[in-house]
């Protein structure tokens, strides 16, 4: 919470990136508390590790200071406060944390627990669900990573190719 406030207030983008890495590590520890080791690992590696480095590399291309806003933006603050209040209000409808007899713990999850070892010979339930039962979703995720990577590569390279070669149209 304090970290996010600091991120919002800070104008020096280098500090913002470092604080975002700190935030990712904090989120990873929250995930550890929830026993979601896979997610915690991803958060620590992607959020705190690689994305920090990539953001620093992007910072290398731009200026390190954010331009100060000319006037306090009232409408965005109101919108974000409203959305936040709506989300907090919506959490009152969620079942209490860790309770066992919710629908999500009663239909699919027992099936996975009972059958995943038998079906796939894979002890890690998360891996079995991600790569086998929900394999199509994971294919989609990989495609998203692929598409995003190609897009950024094209954006970063297209300009340079257009600048160095005079024929232009190929970029």
């Amino acid at each position: 919470m304090i970290v996010t406030l600091a991120i919002v207030r800070m104008r020096n983008l280098f500090g913002v990136i470092v604080l975002a890495g700190v935030y990712s590590f904090l989120m990873a520890s929250v995930m550890m508390v929830y026993d979601a080791v896979d997610v915690a690992m991803t958060e620590a590696a992607v959020g705190a590790g690689v994305s920090t480095v990539l953001l620093l590399a992007a910072l290398h291309l731009t200026k390190a200071r954010e331009y100060p806003q000319p006037r306090p933006a009232a409408i965005p603050v109101l919108v974000s406060l409203g959305v936040g209040a709506a989300l907090v209000w919506a959490t009152y409808d969620l079942p209490a944390f860790g309770i066992a007899d919710t629908p999500i713990n009663n239909h699919v999850v027992p099936y996975y627990f009972e059958n995943s070892m038998k079906d796939t010979n894979v002890g890690n339930l998360v891996a079995a669900i991600l790569a086998d039962y929900r394999g199509f979703d994971t294919l989609g995720e990989v495609t998203v990573v692929f598409t995003a990577g190609i897009g950024v590569l094209l954006l970063l390279k297209g300009r340079r190719a257009g600048k160095s070669s005079s024929d232009g149209g190929s970029a």
């Binding site: 590399a57 291309l61 079906d119 796939t120 079995a128 394999g135 990577g149």
Partner: peptide, 29 residues
């Protein structure tokens, strides 16, 4: 067979994710 399938698929994920990250880093730097 399904264990093997998961193995193949994970190799595909590994290649795409790692090479995308490295390619982005190369492009930025």
């Amino acid at each position: 067979a399904r264990e093997r399938g998961i193995l193949f698929v994970e190799i595909g994920v590994l290649l795409t994710v790692s090479s995308t990250m490295v390619a982005l880093f190369y492009a930025f730097s």
